[in-house]
Amino acid sequence: MNYTTKDIQQRVDHYISQFKEGYFSPLSLQARLTEEVGEMAREINHRYGEKPKKKTEKDKALEEELGDVIFVLTCFANSLDIDMSEAFEQSMSKIESRDKNRWTRKGEGSSYNE
């Protein structure tokens, strides 16, 4: 299934709108995002790092952890009335401009040109 950021924001809003409590406060969402990113980092460390899982720990799909991060980020954006597509566009424009000569392009010899 393919979702646009608008689809994702609408689906999350539809889900959250069912509950009287609504979205958590920005501070609570930041704490929750930190928690979810930590869970994703732990899974990455188990898979690609030097820290093996305990025998009692279940395997978690990295996709599930990334999905949790996307959900909380979407809650954050929705609660602050931020369009994720616009936020992404602003970020990519900044990165594409600032870092356009920073990395070695495929087929070129030198890397950082600044």
Rank of each mutant, 00 (worst) to 15 (best):
Q30D: 02
E63M: 15
Q18F: 10
T34L: 11
Q18W: 10
R32H: 13
E50M: 05
E36H: 01
R47K: 06
A61W: 00
H14T: 14
S17H: 05
E43N: 06
Y48K: 02
T4K: 04
V37E: 04
G49L: 02
R11S: 14
K53E: 07
G22P: 05
R11W: 06
Y3S: 12
N45H: 05
K55P: 00
R47C: 04
E57F: 08
S25L: 05
I8C: 04
V37H: 05
D59Y: 06
E43F: 01
S25C: 01
D13V: 03
E21D: 05
S17T: 03
E57I: 09
E35H: 12
L33V: 05
S25V: 04
I16P: 13
I44D: 01
S17Y: 00
H46Y: 07
Y15K: 14
L27C: 00
G38Q: 04
T5R: 14
K20T: 07
E50C: 01
Q10Y: 05
E64K: 09
V37G: 02
Q18V: 01
K6Y: 02
D59P: 01
A31L: 08
D7K: 06
E35Q: 14
E63P: 00
G22L: 04
G22H: 12
K60F: 08
I16M: 13
A31W: 02
E43T: 09
Y15W: 15
D59S: 06
D13S: 13
R42C: 00
E57R: 09
R47D: 02
R32C: 09
F19T: 02
E36L: 01
E64N: 10
H14A: 15
S25Q: 08
P52C: 06
H46P: 02
E39W: 02
D13P: 04
Q18N: 14
E21S: 08
V12S: 07
S17D: 07
Q9R: 09
E36W: 00
E57A: 13
R11I: 12
K6A: 15
T56P: 01
H46R: 14
R47F: 00
Y23A: 05
F19H: 04
I8Q: 03
S28Y: 08
S28I: 12
E21R: 06
D13G: 03
K53Q: 11
Q9K: 10
A61H: 06
H46L: 11
V37F: 06
G22E: 05
V12T: 07
E65R: 01
T4Y: 05
L62E: 01
P52W: 03
K58S: 13
L62H: 00
K55F: 00
K55R: 03
M40Y: 08
I16W: 10
L62V: 05
